[in-house]
């Protein structure tokens, strides 16, 4: 019963959000200049040729009729066909989603593995003697200041010029050997992680600093509890909430496609697929891609809400509605 109270409003909100995203992507795609007919026929097409193609894809119908048809098909699980290959786009997304998922998870794991402890350490060290806290700040500030494509380009050059064991591009799917797969995933993961490490470091450091000034921590100090226990029982538990938020947000961002990393390292994820389909005005792909990314994002947020409720039941209740 409590689960229903927890879920029902969230599901409603999620449905509204998804509808909004669907409407937005559909309308904006129709608003942008140029269409698939322009792209595929190239410059040297007659108006009649373009019209024929537009008609074939039903793009001559009123926009809300098109939207209605698309939505109706969606509800029946039909995401439409790509105009380029005339094949269902959902198949392509199902094939690519695990790759994007893997890249996102690896990036997140690496970033959390480094960013979290550094952030906690930096937060705890802040205000203490010496400049230990500053190192954390400096790392955080530095990591967030280099665009991933610069790091990626440097990796590509270094690792293609000298054979150092890792591969630039030449993606190998996971089911063809874990190590072979990892060899192609390490570099993109690392180039994406640099920013993410800084992000988690800063978030954690900040959360720790905030929690440390809370009354119950001061009380615990006053009680004379051991610092290690204070950190474990009070600080980390309470600092976890903003970290969970940022993790969910950033994970959603990665799932929406790390286009640049995919392009640089030839990773067949969803990002480049959506991006280049937008360039080609292959509407069904962009629509499905945006919708699926939004769906994952919304779901993740719901999972994060669950996590809040588990960490601190009060917050779980307070956060509903945002």
């Amino acid at each position: 019963m409590r689960l229903i109270y927890f879920l029902a409003p969230r599901l409603l909100i999620a449905a509204i959000t998804m509808f909004g995203v669907a409407l937005l992507v559909f309308l904006s795609l129709r608003l942008i200049p140029g269409g698939y007919a322009d792209i595929v026929l190239g410059p040297f097409a007659t108006g009649a040729a373009r019209d024929l193609l537009i008609q074939r894809y039903g793009l001559d119908e009123p926009i809300f009729v098109q939207f209605g048809k698309w939505l109706w098909a969606l509800l029946q699980g039909d995401f439409g066909n790509s105009m380029v290959t005339n094949k269902p786009v959902i198949d392509e997304f199902l094939r690519r989603a695990p790759v994007t998922g893997e890249l996102a998870i690896l990036t997140l794991l690496l970033a959390l593995a480094i960013g979290l402890p550094l952030g906690v350490w930096s937060g705890l060290a802040e205000g203490g003697a010496g400049g230990k806290g500053r190192l954390g700040r400096l790392v955080g500030a530095l990591g967030a200041s280099v665009p991933d494509f610069v790091i990626g380009s440097a990796f590509i050059f270094i690792f293609s010029k000298w054979s150092l064991g890792l591969k630039v591009g030449g993606f190998v799917p996971l089911d063809q050997g874990l190590w072979d797969n990892l060899k192609t995933m390490i570099l993109p993961t690392v180039s994406l992680s640099v920013f993410a490490i800084a992000l988690f470091l800063r978030t954690t450091r900040d959360a720790v600093l905030r929690v440390m000034t809370d009354g119950h921590i001061l009380a615990a100090v006053a009680r004379g509890q051991r610092p290690r226990d204070i950190v474990r029982h009070h600080v980390l538990r309470n600092a976890a909430i903003p970290v969970v938020t940022v993790t969910a947000t950033y994970f959603g961002f990665l799932l929406g496609g790390a286009v640049i990393a995919e392009v640089l390292f030839s990773i067949p994820g969803v990002g480049y697929y959506i991006f280049s389909s937008l360039e080609e005005r292959d509407y069904a792909v962009v629509q499905a891609g945006v919708l699926l990314a939004a769906f994952v994002f919304v779901s993740l947020n719901m999972v994060a809400d669950f996590a809040y409720a588990l960490i601190d039941p009060r917050i779980g209740a307070a956060r509903s509605g945002t």
Partner: peptide, 8 residues
């Protein structure tokens, strides 16, 4: 938030 930022 839910709309992939770069694509938006």
């Amino acid at each position: 938030f839910a709309f992939p930022a770069l694509l938006f």
